[in-house]
Design a protein around this nucleic acid. Structure first.
Lengths: 226, 226
DNA sequence: GTATTATTAGAGTATATACTCTAGTGAGTC
DNA sequence: GACTCACTAGAGTATATACTCTAATAATAC
């Protein structure tokens, strides 16, 4: 594997684990057992590393949210979108944590992220539209649909932050993909009042699968705990 | 005014304006034209300053969310809660921006914030309950109500972050209280499907008052722009 | 082989950051 | 006037951070 790619990979790993703010270029170099000079041969600065990681993230989500227009949407499709988006969120979870700071320090990133957000919002809105066409939810007028989509976006992108702040553990690193996916429960909660009688029970059953457990926050299930 | 209070006030101002991450204790001292030594006479460290500011914030919100149990809830009450909460969010807007980092660096803050969150969630849930009692929204079972409350909390606490990242301007400082209060539109969107026929129109009218304008993001209306 | 280019090490630098230490000052008390 | 004590100035420190520079080595092209 090329040094350049190793830097990207290690950076992502360290950022996710400790937060971008707590990871310096020297840390990244040390973690890879290469010199800082070497790192700066491949990247002009820390922002460049972050920007490239964002491009990967963007590509991944854009790929997930590519909605086929040649057929109707199914419940399985919806479940797949939700699962995929939360998987992406998990893999690049450092990103939303320091988002504001990152956007302030890199105009390219600000611009790109803005467009990315708009694409995602459009995709969510389109999903709602197709869910209505498929008779899964009641159809809504455009204004309500876009406000709902924005709420879905807010819940999705900030569920992780909520979990971390709600955790009692001193280190917020202790989090599992399973817990993260309880965000799906929250997203489906938004849909509940709009479900058609025909699909109501099936969606409620799907939602139930993601219901947060009452106990056992941080157990052997974890992938990040240490 | 006492130096100690001036430090708290200036810190809050600078944090709100530039973000906690971009404000050092030296900046604060310089801004007040006092020596760093003086600042450290009054506060052991930066975390202590932040913690005290949080205590003020907490007190403010707890005061706002004190729900009178001796009478029914009105629409005006609900509007007041929303306005108040967003006012508080505005006055201490630096806080949610770097929340995760702040909680990671101060266990007291983590613990207190956790309890604060739970009180807020309980208050939101209680508001829903009383809205149902007053016939403004349809009553819901406890499980749905608490999931809804959590969504409301997510939308409220992260609306600001969304606005900042959606802004095209390079500095995310450019934001107005008016824009922030469009978050109320988003929160009321969550209630829309639960409204009773009796109140539907009145709530929709209230909601309309906060509808985001399509144009003119950053104009003379602004209090932070510079 | 030789020339060129890509890659790497590692010491070094300028700046910043949180915080400390010492030496006071000035207002009140006896 | 001596004493106390809350308060303040300002120089100073240890460490960190992002990043640079030079020189060397490995890979590739001709």
């Amino acid at each position: 594997m090329k040094t350049r790619d190793k830097i990207l990979l290690s950076s992502l790993e360290l950022f996710n684990e400790r937060g971008e703010r707590n990871v310096t270029t020297n840390h990244i170099a040390a973690h890879l057992a290469i010199s800082p000079g070497n790192l700066y041969y491949h990247f002009r600065n820390k922002s460049d590393i972050i920007y490239e990681i964002f491009l990967e993230y963007e590509k991944l989500v854009d790929f997930y949210l590519d909605i086929p227009e040649d057929r109707a949407m199914t419940l399985d499709d919806m479940a797949f979108y939700l699962e995929s988006v939360f998987d992406g969120l998990w893999s690049y979870r450092f990103f939303h944590r320091d988002l504001e700071y990152l956007l302030d320090s890199d105009p390219r990133l600000r611009q790109d992220y803005r467009e990315f957000t708009n694409r995602c919002l459009a995709a969510i809105s389109r999903i709602f539209e197709k869910l209505a066409e498929a008779g899964i939810i009641e159809p809504q007028e455009e204004g309500l649909r876009s406000a709902m989509s924005l709420n879905v976006w807010l819940v999705i992108t900030n569920w992780m932050a909520f979990l971390k702040t709600a955790h009692a553990a001193e280190a917020s690193a202790c989090l599992t993909l399973t817990e993260l996916k309880q965000g799906i429960y929250q997203v489906l909660t938004l849909e509940v009042p709009y479900l058609t009688p025909a699909y109501r029970e099936r969606v409620m059953a799907l939602r139930e699968k993601y219901r947060p457990a009452l106990h056992g926050k941080c157990d052997q299930d974890s992938e990040v705990c240490k």
